[in-house]
Design a protein around this nucleic acid. Structure first.
Lengths: 228, 228
DNA sequence: AGCAACAGCTATGGCGAGTAGCTTTCGGCA
DNA sequence: TGCCGAAAGCTACTCGCCATAGCTGTTGCT
């Protein structure tokens, strides 16, 4: 009873611990297969039985690695969040700070999400009723908000957007615009990549709309913004 | 084998057909309960066993009314599409044609969808992998596009939007903006109604963005639009 | 009034999640 | 090197759900 789940603390020594490494490899392999299954059968079509079949193992064996099907979903969620965050962070880091970084980051995010639809659905649509991601698994999304918020602040600082863009409200607007494109693309053009469908080409237009939503203050508007 | 499913053609006479009426009532009752179950347990949490339990009947009896669980999903999908369409059509009919009608229609649509989340998810997120709506069930959504397209054309005609707004592209943009708000609201604020959450208040702003996206032609821009 | 269709039932099969408990493998350590 | 305990696999089983087969009582049209 105690030996399952977390298989005891490592032997205190910082040694490679061959055992633990192989275990981790197996876990990753299970998650990879689970992702494949979701791609083939839909997010809610994931079944441990099918994963076991593809792994060449009997279903109960998987319980040595995950406490339940929901545990697998949670691991997939966490891994997806982290990878998604990394992709976006990288794209933003490679670009000129401000609007360019924001645009590049969002586009990279969009590409990754469309290329990893099953995970994207798991992350943003919560299609599995009995699955509630753990707080730990939610942490990266807080980080993503921070990144976007910083990019907006940069854009304001360098005069690409009006001052109101440095706000939570603006972050919501950005995520609303993005989730609109992605939802439409995923629901209506299930097999097309970024740029191939009818919706993602609107992305540049949406970025221009963002600029329109937070215009640089004119001398006239400046007075208004003071009253805040 | 033949007597199940479609229970034979009505007796040709256009009589009230008591039998058929009661049957239809039962079907509606089953769908109502199914909707409740989805609300309680999530869209994919719908089970015929639970419906049977709530209806006070043994599970196999339901197969007298629907060929399968997917059949129930399909009926829910169709009923949802029709009701959603009716709500939007009504709201638009009650408003001044053009931008106002479009706005009222979209808002009514949004309110209805948030008030009927389970159905909304079924309609737009396709969460059930093995469920593909029948062509008949998809027809109302074509009609919705037509409605929106007409409203955009009206808006162009009365000079509320630039001429480019009378296009499929503009319809995509509208649906993108809307689906963004709704997706965000549904995924992140699962228990709040329209107006109570962080996202739907952005709706008026989005409508203003739509106007910004299709500005009335200035004398300068007019020349460009001729080249089309 | 009679009867065919209908609407319910029980029994059964098949499949997936998850648990219990056993056996085998293997790697760390004396 | 060889021991031993934990890890990793297995079989057997329960439970719940979808779906089918086939039976019975009811009901409302003709």
């Amino acid at each position: 009873m105690k030996s399952d789940r977390t298989p005891a603390a490592p032997p205190a020594s910082g040694r490679p611990d061959r055992r633990a490494r192989r275990r981790q490899e197996t876990i990753e392999e299970i998650l990879d297969i689970a992702e494949d299954v979701m791609t083939d059968e839909g997010v809610t079509g994931l079944s441990l039985a099918e994963v076991a079949r593809r792994l060449g193992v009997q279903p109960p064996s998987l319980y040595k690695y995950f406490p339940s099907l929901m545990g697998v979903y949670n691991a997939l969620f966490l891994r997806g969040q982290r990878e998604h965050l990394a992709v976006m962070r990288q794209a933003m880091a490679d670009a000129e700070p401000g609007l360019v970084a924001l645009t590049k980051g969002l586009e990279a995010s969009g590409r990754w999400l469309l290329a990893n639809r099953a995970i994207a659905q798991l992350l943003f649509w919560r299609p599995v009723p009995s699955f509630e991601p753990s707080p730990e698994a939610l942490a990266p999304s807080v980080e993503m908000v921070t990144l976007q918020r910083a990019a907006l602040a940069d854009a304001v600082a360098v005069g690409q957007l009006g001052p109101e863009a440095d706000s939570d409200e603006a972050v919501y607007l950005v995520s609303t615009l993005i989730s609109g494109v992605l939802t439409q693309a995923m629901a209506n053009e299930p097999h097309l990549e970024w740029g191939q469908d009818r919706f993602t080409p609107a992305f540049p237009k949406l970025m221009r709309l963002l600029v329109a939503a937070y215009p640089l203050p004119t001398s006239k508007a400046k007075r208004r913004s003071h009253s805040r």
